[in-house]
Write a protein that binds this DNA or RNA. Structure first.
Lengths: 156, 156
DNA sequence: GTTTATGCAAACTGTTTGCATTGCT
DNA sequence: AGCAATGCAAACAGTTTGCATAAAC
């Protein structure tokens, strides 16, 4: 199905088709929901976001689509310890956008940060080379999260 | 309850009592299970490990105890994406032992590593200072995980 | 036309909760 | 004695699965 809109919403079609998956209206809606926000959406969040325009897309499809997108490498699945999985687009029309997370252990707020990434990237690169030599491990991704108390919670 | 054994199994008693929690046989068994292995035990794993000697300790107690230990800062709770929480002692009789994880996305194997920790700690320290200035966030802990394919899975 | 995706309902898994009882301090 | 911890059974939440139908290729 060609893109219905004149904008570039089909950047991911190739990546999905290349892996033998099909492009459907439901999947379009789910990717759009993910790319329309900076938040870390749960499956339920996505359901809420798209249910108005796509009342036919149910939770099952969302879970199955998210699994597929994780498998295809388009989406990252996170766990922040609140019992539900959260999903984030790994790349957009403009390419990959990498960041790490600050998790407030009190109010569960999540702050994305991209500062200091340069130093971190340098260390990560070195670490990855070292680890692959030492353990024969091929590293494809990483997760860095800091836990603590956010400004709001420190105040009270 | 003073330690029944002549060894140093009571190193954590103070930390638990200081926070207003009590020392019980079940909790002793759970901490012993955690300290007797390098593995990342799930609640069910712990149940299996202690059920012979402590048939009276049920799953509920294990969950509640683990929550308490996480709260008391003695245990770290992880999620490796296999649907069950996993727990690891944060410190032992000899003090804290910090490490990070390599997660094989194919076979789900987890490899602990402590290499490069010094460099990492240095960077983390700098990052933490920067983040606390920028976001007013007080960082108390961090999680670093690398994802990829282990040597075994690369071979096949 | 063939194969993959979907929706529904029901099943499943890990975890949590209410309440009466036990046990630490 | 007083209050925290436990066990049991039942409840719960998020997620997964089987199967018939619909849609993409």
């Amino acid at each position: 199905m060609p893109c219905q809109r004149r904008c570039g919403h089909q950047w991911w079609h190739g990546k999905v088709r290349d892996r033998g998956f099909r492009v459907t209206a439901g999947r379009e809606a789910i990717i759009e929901a993910l790319s329309s926000t900076q938040d870390h959406l749960s499956a339920e969040d996505i359901y809420g976001k798209i249910h108005d325009r796509h009342p036919n897309v149910g939770p099952t499809t969302i879970y199955r689509t998210l699994d597929m997108l994780v498998q295809a490498g388009l989406v990252f699945k996170f766990d922040f310890g609140d019992g539900k999985a959260r999903y984030e687009l790994r790349e957009g029309p403009k390419g990959a956008h990498h960041h790490h997370h600050l998790v407030c252990t009190s109010c569960k707020r999540i702050i994305d940060y991209t500062d200091f990434i340069d130093e971190e990237l340098e260390l990560l690169k070195r670490t990855e080379v070292g680890l692959s030599k030492r353990y024969g491990f091929r590293i494809e991704d990483h997760l860095i999260q800091f836990y603590g108390l956010c400004a709001e919670c420190l105040r009270s």
